[in-house]
Write a protein that binds this DNA or RNA. Structure first.
Lengths: 110, 110
DNA sequence: CAATATACCTTGTAATACAAAGTAACTTAT
DNA sequence: ATAAGTTACTTTGTATTACAAGGTATATTG
């Protein structure tokens, strides 16, 4: 992946993950798929990127996890749910993201 | 500055700097002011951030520099001008930025 | 003369996306 | 039944980069 693409992803991925978790509990693998499909295939989140993000968010108590065994078959899945402080954090991040975005748009569209 | 704010800045600052240099030659200090004013005061670029970016861009031959002495008085200023390959790089970056942006917008606005 | 603004530069730190590797269970095709 | 593929989670190491905090030096203003 191009290096500037990586740079633009910074922070944005965390924001996207938080947003999906605000909507509903999800497990890691489903987050990868959701990010991909809902972004229209534009954003690809690698598993080696996702899991460290999830552990980070959990360390900060912005999300919590619980294991869920599949009925009958299927590997157990580790679900994540957002906490109250996580919701606040998401709001803060979103605001900052929109701000930066607005600022850079003004510079670019000239 | 908040940490997520920093993250959102990654890459975006380089993009903004390149955009301003596509428009016209500028020296470091003026870039800081332009980024600030044109973003409506939203984006603040620190000098300790700017200069390393400029050296990086110059190493890659995306920009070139030249000193200009001020008529009569005033410190000499180091101006930067974008190169041909720099213009191409800017186009590539812009495309990637708009892509990522579109992708994340789709996830967020739901 | 002191304070402020202009202008440039350097070092060290923290954050984080990715590549690459691994483990393991389940599913599908041959 | 076996091999190959998919699902699912984990870890280690690397590269990038924005910032804080320090510095130098000249010019302007009170």
């Amino acid at each position: 992946m191009s290096n500037f693409r990586k740079q633009f992803n910074k922070g944005v991925l965390e924001l996207g993950i938080m947003k999906l978790l605000v909507e509903q509990d999800q497990y890691g693998y489903s987050l990868i798929e959701e990010i991909h499909s809902r972004s229209g295939g534009i954003i690809e989140l690698k598993d080696g990127t996702l899991y460290p993000i999830l552990y980070r968010l959990e360390d900060q108590k912005w999300i919590e996890s619980y294991w869920e065994t599949q009925t009958g078959r299927g590997k157990p899945r580790k679900y994540y749910r957002i906490t109250e402080s996580g919701k606040q954090r998401f709001e803060d991040m979103l605001e900052d993201y929109l701000d930066v975005n607005l600022g850079i748009q003004k510079i670019i569209k000239h």
